[in-house]
Each structure stands twice: as structure tokens, then as C-alpha cells.
Amino acid sequence: MDVCVRLALWLLWGLLLHQGQSLSHSHSEKATGTSSGANSEESTAAEFCRIDKPLCHSEDEKLSFEAVRNIHKLMDDDANGDVDVEESDEFLREDLNYHDPTVKHSTFHGEDKLISVEDLWKAWKSSEVYNWTVDEVVQWLITYVELPQYEETFRKLQLSGHAMPRLAVTNTTMTGTVLKMTDRSHRQKLQLKALDTVLFGPPLLTRHNHLKDFMLVVSIVIGVGGCWFAYIQNRYSKEHMKKMMKDLEGLHRAEQSLHDLQERLHKAQEEHRTVEVEKVHLEKKLRDEINLAKQEAQRLKELREGTENERSRQKYAEEELEQVREALRKAEKELESHSSWYAPEALQKWLQLTHEVEVQYYNIKKQNAEKQLLVAKEGAEKIKKKRNTLFGTFHVAHSSSLDDVDHKILTAKQALSEVTAALRERLHRWQQIEILCGFQIVNNPGIHSLVAALNIDPSWMGSTRPNPAHFIMTDDVDDMDEEIVSPLSMQSPSLQSSVRQRLTEPQHGLGS
């Protein structure tokens, strides 16, 4: 029994001894940790006062410096006190997940390849973020970090730009207890964004957000305005092209109309020559008939004078003969009235020469109109080809070629109108001259024959008349068809009918 009691006491004593040793060891460790923490804080404070003595007594600045020092320690893998190029590049790629850190790398180092804690602190103090207000930090939280649900907490804590380094380091107390961020992804996102802002300055999105919006609005307005302008120009170009094509079609119709007119003019001239020949034959025939009538009257007179026994018949025959003579005298007077005045042959040749010289100047004017028309046609064809290209319509709308071609078409039409008026006036004037003179002027042997017949020096006439060419005029020349008939041919039928009527009546009387 005593043995059992003793054994229990030994065990209890051993447990108490072991517990005492454990408590003693724990207290010694706590004392050691407290001592090392105090030494670390003293070291940080001493270093901060050495680097930035004016701010070393500010608790907030001291906390920010400690956060900057921890960031530098995080980047300094070899713990030599300086962050070199390789260490910063590795940190950007692995910790901040930048696949192309060239720009960030140059911004961080600049011309200094080794970055110490002092360099990093001075860079942070010179950053724009260091002077941010609470509102600017909240704006950064909303737009860049995209965590607007913590806006009220940031405003309540009055977190300005000075506190940004403390957000950039992993601090459970700061993010969990103070900021009350329960979501781990939110804490990590805030820490990475803050670290990027401390090292490289304010984000471009935050700094140029309004400018970007303004430029976007301006670009949209310019784009819409450009599209509207292109649409208006395209519609104007199509309308202008439609008008130009309509004018061009009018020129083609006028060309065909003048071609038909020239054919009718040539045909009328041929008919005029035929009528002139018929007139000469008719006059000769009338003279022959008059002579035959005179001979017949003389023969009847002689027969009736030789027959004294038939006085009654003779008297009747003499009366008939007197009627025939009276008819012959009237026919002769009618014929003489139409051919009583004949212009000198020299006057006819001079008038024919005048007509040919006028035709020369008319042909020159006509050729100029043809050239203008050809230029207008070529310009229209070029515009047609340009319209078939990809940007042809837009190019035509913004060039002056369309207006130039339109002006050329209008100029050609005006020139053709002048040529039309000149042709109309010339035909009418020479027709009236032919009526008054009674001989042909338009139809003549040609300028060379006339110059030779009148003994004129050929050098006075200049160049010879160009051959009539096919040219274009407007449709108002169609009503000239009825005026192209020679006035002499219009007189011939009346002359034929009057003479024939007077010759036929006596012959019928003789026949009876």
C-alpha cells in the first residue's frame, strides 16, 4: 500500500516538474521574441530617421516606410540591400504576372540599375499617388481596383495617398480587421493593385479616363459626320452624273437629228437641180409651141386668103386666128415678164464666191463646235470609267472633274446653238437673194472655178474651204426642212400651169 502511494507521488512530482520546465521555456521564448521585435522596430526607426529625418517622428509615415521596406525586401531575393535588374524582372513576371514588363521595368529602374530602400522611398515620395486625397483614393478604388463596396470604409478611415504602401503589403490585420475584407480574392486584388500603384505611379486608366471618354465621343461624332458627308456627296454625285448623262444623251439625239437633216438637205439640193433642168426644158418647149402656133396661124391665113369662094369660112377662120394671136401675145408677155430682167453673169459669180467664202467661216465655227463636243464626250467617258472602280463615286464626288465636264457640255451646247442659228439665217438669206436675182447661188462650180473665172489672186482667199464634216446640232433644225426648197423651184409650177393653160385654150379652139 505504501509502495503505491509513493509511486503516485513520484509521478505527480515528475509531471509538475515537466510543466514548470515548459512554462519556463515558453517565457524565455516570449522574452526573446519581444526582444528581437523591439530590436527590429528600433532598426527600422533608425534607418527611417537617417533617410528622412523630418518625417521620422510621424507614426503614419513610419508605418508607410516600414511597408516600403517590406516591399523592397520582397523584391530583393539575395538580401544584399539592392534590387537589381534581374530581381525586378523576376518579381514583375512571377509576382505581378506581367508577361511583357518592358515598360514597367524601365519606369521602375530608370537609369539606376540598383534600387535601395532609400531610392524606393524617395521614388514613392515623388510619386503623384503620395499626394492623393481621400476622394482620389476612393476614385482609384472604384475605377481601377473595381471594389466600390468598400468606398464607405475607405472614407470612414480617411485613407489618403500616404496609406497606399500599407495596402500594398500582406497585412491580415489591416485588410481583415480594419478594412473588414472577408473575401480573400478581394484582399489579394487590392494588394496587387496597390503594389502596382506604389511602384509605377497612378494607372493610365485613372489619369486619362475623362480624356479617353472625350476622345471617344469626338471620334464618334467625327465618324458619324464623315459618313453623313460621304452619303450627301455620294447622292449629289449621282444626281449630277444623272443630269450629265441626260445632257449627253441629248447631244447624241441632236447628232442623229442633224445627220438626218444633212441627208434631207442634200436630197433637197438634188431636187432643186432637177427642177432647174426641168424649167429650162419647159421654157424651150414653150418657145417651140409658140413658134409652131405662129407657123400654123400663118399657114391657115395663107390658105384662107387663096380661097375666095369660102368667105364665110374665111371670116370665121380669121376670127379664130385673131383669138390665137391674142393668146400668143399674152403668152409672150407672160414669158417676157418672167425673163425680162437677167442679172449679169459676173454678178452671179461674185454672189456665188461670196456664198463660198461665208461657208468657209461657217465651217470653221462648226469645227470648233465639233472639237468642244469631242472634249465633252471624252470627259464623260472618263467619268463613266471612274464610277466603275471601287472608290470611283467617292473620288468623283470630291474632285472638280464632274463640274468641269458639266461646264464643257454646256459650252458645247451653246456653241451648237450658235451654229444652228447661223445655218438657219444663212439658208434663209441666200434663198431670198436667189428669189430676187432669179439664178442659182448655193449650187455653184466651187471656189476654185469661181476664183479662176473672176481672175482673182488665190492668195487673197487664204486656205481653201474644208470639206463639210458631220457635226452635231440641236433638234430645232428639224423645222428647217420646208425652207430648204429653192424659190426657183417653187415658181416653176405656177409658170408651167399659166403658160400651158393659155396655149391649150387656143389649140382647142383651132381643133374645133
Rank of each mutant, 00 (worst) to 15 (best):
L63M: 12
L63I: 07
L63N: 10
L63F: 05
L63W: 14
L63V: 03
L63Y: 06
S64C: 09
S64Y: 13
S64E: 14
S64P: 13
S64W: 12
S64N: 06
S64M: 14
S64D: 14
F65R: 13
F65C: 09
F65K: 12
F65Q: 13
F65V: 09
F65Y: 06
E66I: 12
E66G: 04
E66M: 09
E66W: 08
E66A: 02
E66D: 05
E66K: 04
E66R: 07
E66L: 07
E66P: 08
A67G: 01
A67C: 11
A67K: 09
A67W: 13
A67I: 10
A67N: 10
A67Q: 05
A67V: 02
V68Q: 07
V68G: 09
V68Y: 04
V68R: 03
V68L: 04
V68D: 01
V68P: 12
V68W: 14
V68C: 07
V68E: 09
V68H: 10
R69W: 07
R69I: 07
R69S: 01
R69F: 11
R69T: 09
R69L: 03
R69G: 04
R69E: 14
R69V: 08
R69H: 03
N70A: 12
N70Y: 03
N70R: 15
N70F: 11
N70G: 15
N70K: 01
N70L: 14
N70P: 13
N70C: 12
N70I: 01
I71K: 10
I71E: 08
I71D: 12
I71N: 03
I71W: 12
I71A: 11
I71P: 13
I71H: 12
I71Q: 10
H72I: 11
H72L: 01
H72A: 10
H72E: 06
H72G: 09
H72K: 06
H72Y: 01
H72M: 12
K73T: 05
K73N: 04
K73P: 05
K73D: 05
K73A: 09
K73R: 02
K73L: 04
K73E: 03
K73V: 09
K73S: 06
L74S: 12
L74V: 03
L74Q: 03
L74R: 04
M75P: 03
M75V: 00
M75F: 09
M75D: 07
M75Y: 11
M75H: 11
M75E: 12
D76A: 10
D76R: 15
D76H: 03
D76N: 09
D76S: 15
D76L: 14
D76G: 06
D76T: 15
D76Q: 13
D77G: 00
D77P: 08
D77V: 01
D77A: 00
D77N: 01
D77Y: 02
D77E: 01
D77R: 05
D77C: 06
D77I: 06
D78P: 15
D78R: 15
D78H: 05
D78C: 11
D78F: 13
D78T: 15
D78L: 14
D78E: 08
D78M: 12
D78A: 10
A79H: 06
A79M: 07
A79T: 01
A79N: 08
A79W: 10
A79V: 01
A79K: 05
A79C: 04
A79I: 04
A79R: 03
A79D: 00
N80H: 11
N80L: 07
N80C: 08
N80Y: 02
N80T: 06
N80F: 07
N80M: 07
N80I: 04
N80G: 06
N80Q: 11
N80E: 11
N80R: 07
G81A: 11
G81P: 13
G81F: 07
G81K: 13
G81T: 12
G81H: 14
G81V: 10
G81S: 06
G81E: 15
D82I: 12
D82F: 12
D82P: 14
D82Q: 12
D82W: 14
D82T: 15
D82L: 14
D82R: 14
D82A: 14
D82M: 12
D82H: 09
D82V: 08
D82E: 08
D82C: 08
D82S: 13
V83M: 00
V83K: 12
V83L: 02
V83A: 05
V83S: 07
V83W: 05
V83G: 03
V83I: 05
V83F: 08
V83Q: 12
V83P: 13
D84Q: 12
D84I: 09
D84P: 13
D84A: 06
D84E: 06
D84L: 08
D84R: 11
D84H: 09
D84M: 09
D84G: 04
D84Y: 05
V85A: 01
V85E: 03
V85I: 11
V85T: 10
V85K: 06
V85G: 02
V85L: 01
V85F: 08
V85C: 08
E86Y: 06
E86V: 02
E86A: 06
E86C: 06
E87V: 01
E87C: 06
E87Q: 07
E87D: 02
E87R: 07
E87M: 10
E87K: 01
E87H: 11
E87A: 01
E87N: 02
E87T: 08
E87G: 01
S88E: 05
S88N: 01
S88G: 01
S88C: 02
S88R: 01
S88D: 03
S88H: 03
S88V: 01
S88T: 01
S88A: 00
S88K: 02
S88W: 01
D89W: 04
D89H: 02
D89C: 00
D89A: 01
D89E: 00
D89F: 00
D89Y: 00
D89L: 00
D89P: 07
D89G: 00
D89R: 00
E90F: 11
E90S: 02
E90N: 08
E90V: 00
E90H: 08
E90Y: 04
E90R: 01
E90D: 00
E90T: 00
E90Q: 02
E90A: 02
F91A: 15
F91S: 07
F91G: 14
F91N: 12
F91D: 15
F91C: 12
L92I: 14
L92S: 15
L92F: 13
L92K: 15
L92R: 11
L92G: 15
L92D: 15
L92C: 15
L92V: 11
R93W: 07
R93G: 08
R93V: 13
R93P: 15
R93Q: 15
R93H: 12
R93K: 07
E94D: 06
E94R: 15
E94L: 12
E94I: 14
E94G: 08
E94F: 14
E94Q: 07
E94M: 14
E94P: 13
E94A: 12
E94K: 00
D95C: 11
D95S: 07
D95R: 06
D95L: 09
D95H: 04
D95Q: 04
D95T: 13
D95K: 05
D95P: 11
L96Y: 12
L96E: 09
L96D: 11
L96T: 14
L96M: 09
L96F: 03
L96K: 13
L96N: 11
L96Q: 11
L96P: 03
N97F: 00
N97Q: 01
N97L: 02
N97A: 04
N97R: 01
N97D: 01
N97W: 00
N97E: 04
N97C: 00
N97G: 00
N97H: 05
Y98A: 02
Y98P: 02
Y98D: 01
Y98K: 04
Y98E: 03
Y98H: 00
Y98S: 00
Y98I: 05
Y98R: 04
Y98G: 03
Y98T: 00
